[in-house]
């Protein structure tokens, strides 16, 4: 069963990289089914399936479905105590809610991402969070906060030498 799950995962990832997002989701749903088998029960594999399903639905234009899968990813990453994955799930949720034009919720998740990036000392992640937060605050017309995060983004970009 473990090998079968891995094979489904590899097929899903290959279809995804080929741009066949619908086929990718079918394989990643198989991964989830195998991971959920009571005699098997692999939370890490289940978590990976949810992130991959979230990603594929972005390119299928189903941002609402992506948000649900990313929330499951977030929940499992917390159970598995994997902070890097937790940060990534928050970042994905922030971007997904931006696509859904729900900027308040986007800010909520980008702030969560920012906190974890700071905890982990991830300056690149922190810079991206500030960039995203600046944009989201502009969308809400909150220019004071937008400026605050744009300044922070500039400071971090200079520090890490990101001229772009």
């Amino acid at each position: 069963r473990a090998a079968q799950g891995r094979a489904y995962g590899n097929l899903g990832n290959t279809q995804y990289l080929l741009g066949n997002f619908s086929k990718a989701t079918a394989f990643h749903k198989e991964v989830r089914s195998v991971a959920l088998l009571p005699e098997f029960g692999d939370r890490a594999a289940e978590r990976r399936a949810y992130s991959n399903l979230g990603n594929a639905h972005i390119f299928l234009g189903r941002f609402d479905i992506s948000a649900e899968y990313y929330k499951k990813t977030l929940q499992l990453s917390r159970q598995l105590k994997d902070q890097a994955v937790e940060a990534q799930a928050c970042y994905s949720l922030g971007n997904t809610y931006t696509l859904l034009q729900d900027y308040e919720r986007a800010i909520e998740y980008h702030l969560k991402h920012l906190l974890i990036a700071q905890e982990l000392g991830d300056r690149v992640g922190e810079g991206r969070a500030c960039w995203s937060l600046g944009n989201a605050y502009v969308s809400l017309g909150n220019h004071d906060q937008a400026l605050r995060f744009a300044r922070k983004h500039l400071e971090i970009s200079q520090e890490i030498g990101d001229r772009n």
């Binding site: 891995r6 995962g9 590899n10 990832n13 995804y16 990289l17 594999a45 990976r48 992130s51 991959n52 990603n55 972005i58 390119f59 970042y91 994905s92 971007n95 931006t98 696509l99 991206r128 960039w131 995203s132 944009n135 989201a136 502009v138 969308s139």
Partner: peptide, 26 residues
């Protein structure tokens, strides 16, 4: 409004470009 929208899309666009090459595997 249009300018705001363009700025907004920028950081999400960058995320989506990275995402297209990102697979979560063992």
């Amino acid at each position: 409004v249009e300018r705001t929208h363009l700025i907004q899309v920028d950081s999400v666009q960058r995320w989506m470009e990275d995402l297209k090459l990102m697979t979560d595997c063992e």
